[in-house]
Write a protein that binds this DNA or RNA. Sequence first.
RNA 1: CGGGCGGUGGCUUAGCCUGGCAAAGCGCCUGCUUUGGGAGCAGGAGAUCGGGAGUUCGAAUCUCCCCCGCCCGACCA
Length: 490
Amino acid sequence: MTTLMEEQADFPKEITRMSVDFDRWYTDVVRKAELADYSPVRGCMVIRPYGFAIWEAIQRAFDDMIKSSGHENWYFPLLIPEDVIMREAEHIEGFTPEVAWVTEAGSHGKLDQRLAIRPTSETIVGTVMRKYIQSWRDLPQLTNQWCNVIRWELRTRLFLRTAEFLWQEGHTFHASADEARAEVDLILDYYRQIAEDWLALPVLTGTKSRAETFAGAEYSKSIEAMMRDGYALQAGTSHYLGQNFSRAYEIAFTNRENVRELCHTTSWGISTRMVGGVIMGHGDDRGLILPPKVAPIQVVVVPIYRDDESRARVDAFIETWEAGVRGMGVRLHVDRRDDRPGDKFNHWELKGVPLRLEVGPRDVEARQVTLSDRLHPGRDEKRTLPAMALAEDLPHELARFQRELLQRARDFMAENTFEVQTLAELVEHFKTRNGFVWAPWCGDPACEARVTEETRGVTTRNFDLDAAAEGACLVDGKPAKHRVAFARPY
RNA sequence: CGGGCGGUGGCUUAGCCUGGCAAAGCGCCUGCUUUGGGAGCAGGAGAUCGGGAGUUCGAAUCUCCCCCGCCCGACCA
């Protein structure tokens, strides 16, 4: 009884503990950390400044990457005429269940032709780009747009699956298949870098099975991250579309030999879902843990004082080093609210701020600050740093935190990655735990479907095309073509 | 889209079965006191009880329709 109460007292009272109910933990954290909230519109969310700032950091990082390789930002229309979106059969078949349509408009009344609200833009981009591409000299065209899309999802969750979400969608047009395939790999590696270097989330990179491939693509590749509950999150996809779309939209060019050829195209995207990945990939029972590189606030300062006099002394002390620290590019916030320190500690831990500096009269005396680390929140693990070296030390502490967070996630992924040879072993595994499970697979969609059926929801995530497969398919025993990762997906 | 549950000040909820002045804790505002891990006292503001229709002298409460959310299932490039 006492133990239970003490234990509970040690954790935020406003969020459900992860170990009790992961889904509720997630929703509680998203809302109480002020990342996002529900809206009056079914399945659509409001992204609040603290959550949007994380997305903005991801945007900046990725935008810089693609600009460095010659990609350009465009904007294409939100509304896509029905005849345009319908032209690629396989594509529209895949999307039809989720497309929202505009059928009437203001005083105009019913429209002659329905307009789809973009669920993705391959069709409109192809239709538009067709007129800018005539010669091999016009290629490659490396386009990207940052926008919103609508997919009428039946079950929604904040950030992870919403009816409207924000993303970037890249659409590129190439003269050869090899060049387009290389583009797919380049972008996939950018996505890996965003995940690992910025979000501190290790990922599996590989090719999707036929069943998991984008509608209309020749093949799709993805990055898959592991969440703290062992579920997989597809956090980015890069597709080789072959000539499927250029055939349907007549996107052709005249080559060096004066022969007309169809373009080879790609498309790729990451979305606000990545913010969900950060939350579920790093969080704990106290709330969020944010990677310094994308944290809206990297260091929070909590002044501690007894009276007006000590308050003035503490403030003056903070001012002696605050500008210097900011000058090093550190996103610092001084919490001067008239609340008690304990309140502030819990508040900023819930919001996942990497580092906290506690500054009280004792620190002022010693010309130092007390450092508390979100990865080691215990009272016993606080350290002190000399104030005069803060501008130098804090960037190092943040870099250390970033490394440690990535290592922690890597360790977690390693501890939750397994290997099996048979369907029976795989089914047994998923009865008691989650994680990534590698197994040999013959490539037959029927075998894949069988796994999903017997495990009630486990699917293939991706596989390395170049890796040699050994052994017999876990389902039908035929020679394995791939070593594929299975997991429960979000 | 099917089955189940829920929506009451900013938040968490009680009240609903059995119709009769809308209530508590937290948060918010003011003052005092306090401040090194979620303080205390005093006073105050804040709700057309998710929306609409109906039954009734009277509806948060009963009936019907709709909206939003949660859980389970189906679906998910």
